[in-house]
Amino acid sequence: MSVTTMTLRVPAELAPSLRASAEAAGLSLNAYVVRAARRQAVLDAAQQLAALGLNEDLAGEGDSL
Rank of each mutant, 00 (worst) to 15 (best):
M1N: 09
M1F: 13
S2H: 12
S2M: 11
V3M: 12
V3W: 05
T4D: 03
T4Q: 00
T5I: 08
T5A: 07
T5H: 07
T7C: 06
T7H: 15
L8K: 11
L8A: 14
L8D: 02
R9A: 09
R9D: 08
R9C: 00
V10Y: 00
V10G: 00
V10K: 00
P11R: 05
P11Y: 10
P11S: 15
P11A: 15
P11D: 15
E13K: 15
E13W: 03
L14A: 15
L14D: 15
A15F: 08
P16S: 03
P16W: 01
S17P: 03
S17F: 04
S17E: 15
L18G: 02
L18Q: 00
L18T: 00
L18K: 02
R19T: 06
R19H: 03
R19C: 00
A20C: 01
A20H: 05
A20S: 08
S21R: 01
S21P: 10
S21T: 12
S21M: 04
A22V: 10
A22E: 01
E23W: 07
A24C: 01
A24E: 08
A24H: 06
A25C: 10
A25K: 11
G26R: 01
G26H: 02
G26S: 11
L27Y: 01
L27P: 03
S28F: 08
L29V: 13
A31V: 03
A31W: 02
A31R: 01
V34R: 09
V34A: 13
R35Q: 12
A36T: 09
A37K: 06
A37V: 06
R38G: 06
R38V: 10
R38P: 05
R38M: 06
R39W: 04
R39V: 14
R39S: 04
R39C: 03
R39K: 15
Q40L: 11
Q40F: 10
V42G: 00
L43E: 09
D44I: 00
A45N: 10
A45C: 03
A46Y: 05
A46M: 08
A46C: 04
A46P: 03
Q48V: 07
Q48M: 05
Q48P: 03
Q48I: 08
L49R: 12
A50Y: 07
A50C: 02
A50E: 14
A50Q: 12
A50S: 11
A51E: 14
A51F: 08
A51G: 14
L52D: 11
L52E: 13
G53Q: 11
G53W: 10
L54D: 12
L54Y: 12
N55P: 05
E56V: 15
E56H: 14
D57N: 13
D57C: 06
L58I: 14
L58P: 08
L58H: 04
A59T: 15
A59N: 10
G60M: 02
G60H: 06
G60S: 08
E61W: 12
G62R: 05
G62V: 04
G62A: 11
D63H: 12
D63I: 04
D63Y: 06
S64Y: 04
S64G: 13
L65I: 12
